[in-house]
């Protein structure tokens, strides 16, 4: 189901317009493709980091509030699923555009005229918001499983709050961090709509480039080569994350982690 089109894409990428690795050579040498791939990766890292930054405390709060507040918080996270992606992105366009409320607010704060819509910053904000549920939910589910007595226990044993967090809480929530970051990273790699609408054409992401190649220029070979490159990068990232944050095996786990 998924393999057949992928195989066909791979086939196209080495046969069209002529047999050989020319398409891949182009990816590496045409200047545009590499820039776009690099820009996409950077965007992915930033979006994932921003998501993690907001989602970690948010998910934590969800585990400590009473059930009714938790229901409200969950609804807020899931809200994006109830509106269409297009609608949300357009909402961000309205909010972030020149002369829009966010611009005005920033100007009022004395931050001057910050360009948001049509910029990488705008895309980051909108994408991070869209991705938030994919980060919050895995984090929440791993935090919920952490025994509430562990941090008090660490404190009573002489750990400063920051140390209790680093040695006890964080290691136990790493599986959630791994799941969330992987999801968000992979999803933002293939993201098309938001960068297309909110970003500037001069800062297009790889998904847009592929669309241009396939739809406008009808260069299926180049599109295929780009797609496969994207896939390989995504898989490599997955592997990397899985290797770094093997569930539970981290920071607090090893005796050596503590050595100074």
């Amino acid at each position: 189901m998924f393999v057949v089109p992928m195989a066909r894409l791979a086939w196209l990428s080495v046969t069209t317009p002529e047999t050989g690795l020319a398409n891949y050579r182009d990816v590496l040498t045409d200047g545009v493709s590499l820039t776009v791939i690099w820009r996409t990766l950077r965007m992915m890292l930033v979006v994932t980091a921003v998501c993690l930054l907001f989602a970690y405390p948010y998910a934590y709060v969800m585990t400590v509030v009473p059930p009714r507040t938790r229901a409200v918080l969950t609804t807020i996270v899931l809200l994006p699923f109830w509106t269409s992606l297009m609608a949300r992105t357009f909402a961000w366009v309205v909010l972030l555009q020149k002369g829009g409320p966010v611009n005005d607010a920033l100007a009022a704060l004395g931050l001057g005229d910050v360009r948001l819509a049509g910029s990488a910053t705008g895309v980051t904000i909108a994408m991070a918001q869209v991705m938030l549920p994919f980060m919050v939910l895995p984090l929440y589910s791993s935090m919920r499983d952490v025994d509430r007595a562990l941090v008090p226990a660490a404190l009573s044993l002489g750990a400063r709050p920051a140390v209790a967090f680093l040695r006890v809480y964080l290691p136990l929530t790493l599986p959630g961090v791994a799941a969330g970051t992987t999801l968000v990273a992979v999803l933002s790699l293939g993201f098309y709509v938001t960068p297309a609408l909110l970003g500037s054409p001069k800062e297009s992401m790889i998904a847009q480039l592929i669309a241009v190649k396939v739809q406008d220029v009808l260069d299926f070979g180049a599109g295929g080569a780009l797609s496969l490159t994207l896939l390989v990068v995504a898989l490599a990232l997955l592997g990397l994350v899985a290797r770094f944050v093997r569930p539970g095996a981290a920071l607090g786990m090893s005796d050596e982690g503590d050595r100074r």
Binding site: A149, P152, A153, S156, G158, A164, L172, G248, A249, G252
Partner: peptide, 18 residues
């Protein structure tokens, strides 16, 4: 708490599982 130097034993053990 972390400077009181008291031993505390909790009902559900509260051992660090990792």
């Amino acid at each position: 708490a972390h400077r009181r130097d008291l031993g505390v034993v909790f009902q559900q053990y509260a051992l660090f599982p990792h």
